[in-house]
Design a protein around this nucleic acid. Structure first.
Length: 972
RNA sequence: GCCGGUGUGGCGAAAUGGCAGACGCACAGGACUUAAAAUCCUGGGACCGUAAAAAGUCGUGUGGGUUCGAGUCCCACCACCGGCACCA
């Protein structure tokens, strides 16, 4: 042990209070209508003992949420508790402020490691998961966080994933209505005329179909037998559902034995593990997140997230405005419908500069338009591209490649013939999979044209004539842009875009379009340890396979027992091994994919609100109270949306796009369908920064610089650990760990201990401790031997003492409101340093200080709080310390003690120091009375002996007096 | 390449446009101690001075600018960190 003697007996104090809080359920939050037990400190504080308050009768809520962890086998590292400590401090602070705080914790427990372990050892992932959760929970609890453990949840719990599957059914049974711009039940989807039941008689409403049967046993369905009309209608609906099936190529990762979402693939390798991935067509479930692109984008304006995080989401969604333009194919040998190639461009103003076209190699027209002479070259190029992994495609991106198809297109604005090429720098999956190339004003086209000697025509003049127009991609003025029917020459870029787009629309050659980079969410995984889909597959009379939702009554769909967790030899998911499970009595077969890990984390913050509800994923009343809509006393800080949701959400940046985008998407669907009352889930979000190793490098096992919280706790205790994590620097910053730094705050806590404790009784305590087994339940009683320091007296504080206290209250309060934990701690250090010097320490002053300390170092503060309940040792000491903290009817629980208010009047000085500058340079500091007027201050400044030499022989030009701040004498 | 963020002592950091370096670490000196640990006190940006002081000069990545006054605001650049990356 580097630090030698223990600063204070945290090894007894911390378990004592953790047990106390747990016994008392001190941090349990109560839903509207719930009976609040008498004696519970929250009930005592708010006068709600044995009552069943409605939402309106409860104090204003405050929902503080941590990103729940994946309980890995490695246990907690010091990065986890950083955010958890910050939120715990705020939760405790808000409780003291009188809020009804919801502060829950749970487990994001589905995931690959437990499954990979199962593949290796045959141990069921549930067992691994449960062990890991137990370890995580023990570690988290040893830090004294004030979570409401009665709301604990795990995504792997059937009572939980039943509702994950239920939400999936909602997605499955909904479509996005572009007219109302929101999700609606699939029954509101109209069939097109050819599928309608009679012309307009029943408005083609799908509700005429026996849809009610969806909620009945699936066995009863469609006894009448399918018809062509019925399967056509089913196909129509299936095409519109928010959850749908495609056979599109997906990222298959052979090493992981699963497909991955676009977002899980980085630079051609899997984000997890860095394994290579390949493109492979497979049947997959998709979620139609793209329908929400616009709302996901625009609603960012209504929430309080960091600008950089919003920017990341905006970039991910990637909205771009432009136009789609049709180019006719010259000398067309094709049927009319296919004789056009549609391109997407954000720069229709550069249409006159289009000197060639490029199709993605996968574009569906490529084979049709390729001339016989070029056929071989095109086929070869397509084969090359198909062979390339995405990794190679990105790596080789520097050099442009492509092949001419032999065919020409006609530029609609000037009738010019331009060659059509194929090249892999055009992506099939974005826009229309084809572009018009304007080499003069697009970097990629410029490189391509240079490579293949294609013409480059200027059509934009840069604002600065010295700028080279070649490769100029910004806004300027259109030039050389006059055709037989339309001219935009001379127009600034913005106007040129409008004018030419209007013309294209009028001529039927194109239209305004908005494109998004965002793709639909690939939602199925070939894994065992995830939520099974509540979906079965059947065949209709024509032998066609179709899918159907299981009824709600079939939930939860549990995964089958397996002995082998590997995918099958044919590449089918592991669930396919459970033959009996897969096949239902009616011959239907179950979907064997499972949901991705993101599914469970998409809505866990809602389950916390009503974690045990067996009837619903969340009760209406609980939802509206905690999300802040039903309680008139709630603080609504954003008048624009007036729907705060989670008041504070803290977690790492690694979830900046995926989790946060997916969760927002699900929340909006639930909002549209009327299940939740706010359009956004997380009103305020803060990303905690990374904690690096002592060497300033990212912590990793291979570098050997990982700090284990258990080791720190053993040596310095939870309070010191918490304090240090916050003292390190601003929450959002990346900062290196320093175990030496822990000692600093540990010493501070030791000073607090000595400030309150009596030295002689401490010695007696230590002697008693050496002959006692500290593992016994009686050991904490030893703490009663510690007496209050005799310098602490029930006397009125001096003005200086009051000032020190109130300066501390002010600073800590303001810093907590702004989440500046490090400076709040330093303010408490300043206070303690000063209080140590006081000969007589007023009881009232030190007592208030403990309330400030409590959120940061709750165990120590609670223990000392028992000592300051009365300046004399308690007469009823035989009751033990417990009664002091939790006695019914008495407001003596520190955790719920009202936060002190500072009195600004106590902070005013009678004499203040004013710096005096000459020409902006500090020359002296003078003492003046605080209410001195400017003339007096100026005179005093001029009179200063240190200032005078700098004025001699100079002319005083100007005098700046900033009241109570500074004097600056300007001389020449 | 594009977007976002950050550059302040030996280190972590602090500073509504107004005394740069609070608070802490590490370090040095002292007190207590047989000694050590712990604790308490003192010191500290650099330079130049001096027996020791005082005074002075320079100092917040670099170069400009605005201002009586800039770590803070503006412009240009450099470095590092994070994100995106052939998205037309």
């Amino acid at each position: 042990m580097a630090s030698g003697r223990r600063q204070y007996p945290f090894h007894l104090i911390e378990p004592k209070w953790q047990q106390m809080w747990e016994r008392q359920q001190a941090f349990r939050a109560f839903n509207p209508g719930e009976t609040i037990p008498g004696g519970h400190p929250f009930a005592v504080r708010h006068g709600l003992e044995d009552k069943q308050p409605s939402a309106a009768e409860l104090p204003p809520k405050f929902y503080i949420l941590d990103m729940f962890p994946y309980p890995s086998g490695a246990g907690l590292h010091v990065g986890h508790p950083e955010g958890y400590t910050a939120t715990d401090i705020l939760a405790r602070y808000k409780r003291a402020k009188g809020f009804h705080v919801l502060h829950p914790m749970g487990w994001d427990a589905f995931g690959l490691p437990a499954e990979q372990y199962a593949v290796k050892t045959g141990q069921h992932p549930r067992q691994t998961t449960e062990e890991n959760i137990a370890n995580f929970k023990r570690q988290i609890q040893s830090l004294g966080f004030s979570y409401d453990w009665s709301r604990e949840l795990a995504t792997t719990d059937p009572d939980y994933f039943k509702w994950t599957q239920w939400i999936f059914l909602k997605l499955y049974n909904s479509w996005f209505n572009p007219e109302t711009n929101r999700a609606e039940p699939i029954e509101t989807l109209k069939y097109p005329a050819e599928l309608g039941e009679g012309a307009d008689g029943n408005r083609g409403q799908a509700s005429r179909l026996p849809l009610a049967s969806k909620e009945r046993n699936d066995g009863d369905r469609r006894d009448a037998g399918p018809t062509d009309l019925e399967s056509a209608r089913r196909a129509w609906r299936d095409k519109h559902r928010l959850a749908y099936v495609t056979d599109a190529p997906v990222w298959w990762c052979p090493a992981l034995g699963t497909v991955l979402a676009n977002e899980e693939v980085q630079d051609g390798v899997s984000e997890v593990g860095g394994h290579p991935v390949v493109r492979k067509p497979m049947r997959q479930w998709m979620l139609r997140i793209t329908a929400y692109a616009e709302r996901l984008l625009s609603d960012l304006d209504s929430i309080d997230w960091s600008e950089s995080l919003k920017e990341m989401q905006r970039n991910w969604i990637g909205r771009s405005e432009g136009a789609e333009v049709d180019f006719a194919i010259a000398d067309c040998r094709l049927p009319i419908a296919d004789s056009k190639i549609r391109v997407f461009t954000t720069r229709p103003d550069t249409l006159f500069g289009a000197t060639y076209m490029v199709l993605a190699p996968e574009h569906k027209l490529v084979d049709q338009i390729t001339t016989p002479e070029q056929r071989e070259a095109v086929a070869k190029y397509k084969a090359e591209v198909a062979k390339k992994s995405d990794l190679e495609r990105t790596e080789l991106a520097k050099e442009k490649t492509g092949v001419f198809t032999g065919t020409y297109a006609v530029n609609p604005v000037n009738g010019e013939r331009i060659p059509i090429w194929i090249a892999d720098y055009v992506l099939a999956s974005y826009g229309t999979g084809a572009i018009m190339a304007v080499p003069a004003h697009d970097t990629r086209d410029f490189e391509f044209a240079t490579e293949f000697n294609l013409p480059i025509v200027q059509v934009v003049q840069p604002p600065d004539p010295k700028t080279d127009w070649r490769g100029f991609v910004d806004d300027g003025t259109s030039v050389n842009s006059t055709g037989p029917e339309i001219s935009i020459t001379g127009l600034p870029t913005a106007e040129a875009k409008t004018k030419i787009t209007d013309w294209l629309e009028a001529k039927g050659l194109g239209q305004r379009t908005i494109n998004y980079k965002l793709r639909d969410w690939l939602f199925s995984r070939q894994r065992y340890w995830g939520e099974p889909f509540p979906i079965v597959w059947k065949r209709d009379a024509g032998g066609n396979l179709y899918h159907e939702a299981l009824p709600e009554s079939a939930l939860p769909v549990l995964p089958p027992a397996l002995t082998d967790y590997k995918p099958t030899a044919t590449g089918e998911p592991p669930l396919a091994r459970a033959k009996e499970w897969v096949t239902l009595p009616d011959g239907a077969t179950r979907e064997t994919n499972t949901m991705p890990q993101w599914a469970g984390s998409c809505w866990y913050y809602l389950r916390y609100l009503d974690a045990k509800n067996p009837q619903s994923f969340v009760g209406k009343e609980a939802e509206s109270y905690w999300m802040g809509v039903s309680n008139p006393k709630s603080e609504i800080r954003n008048p624009k949306s007036a729907t705060p949701g989670v008041d504070l959400y803290v977690g790492g940046t690694e979830h900046a796009v995926l989790h946060l985008l997916y969760a927002r998407f699900w929340h909006k669907v639930l909002f549209d369908l009327g299940y939740v009352s706010t359009p956004e889930p997380f009103f305020k979000l803060v990303n905690q920064g990374l904690i690096l190793g002592e060497d300033g490098q990212k912590m990793s096992k291979s570098r050997g610089n990982v700090v284990n919280p258990d080791d720190i706790l053993k040596e310095y205790g939870a309070d010191a650990f918490r304090l240090y994590e916050m003292f390190l620097g601003p929450l959002q910053d990346t900062k290196p760990w320093s175990t030496k730094g822990v000692e600093g705050v540990y010493r501070f806590l030791g000073r607090v201990w000595r400030l309150f404790g009596d030295e002689q009784s401490e010695t007696e305590f230590e002697q008693a401790e050496t002959v006692t087994n500290t593992q016994t339940p009686e050991a904490p009683k030893l703490l009663e031997l510690i007496r209050l320091n005799s310098a602490i007296k029930d006397v009125p504080p001096s003005p200086a003492q009051l000032k020190a206290l109130h300066a501390c209250i002010k600073k800590v309060t303001e810093d907590l409101d702004a989440m500046r934990f490090n400076t709040a701690i330093s303010a408490m250090m300043v206070f303690v340093n000063e209080a140590m010097t006081w000969k007589t320490k007023p009881h009232a002053v030190l007592r208030e200080f403990l309330i400030l300390l409590q959120p940061f170092a709750p165990h120590l503060a609670e223990e000392l709080w028992t000592k300051v309940q009365s300046p004399k040792p308690k007469a009823t000491a035989s009751d033990g310390a417990e009664t002091l903290a939790v006695g019914p009817g008495a407001l003596d629980s520190l955790a719920y003690s009202p936060w002190p208010k500072f009195d600004p009047a106590l902070l005013v000085e009678s004499e203040i120091e004013i710096p005096v500058q000459v020409n902006g340079k500090l020359r002296d500091v003078i003492q003046v009375s605080a209410d001195a007027d400017n003339a007096t201050v100026e005179a005093a400044a001029k009179a200063s002996a240190k200032v005078k030499p700098f004025l001699e022989g100079k002319t005083l030009k100007k005098v700046i007096v900033v009241p109570k701040k500074l004097v600056n004498l300007v001389v020449v």
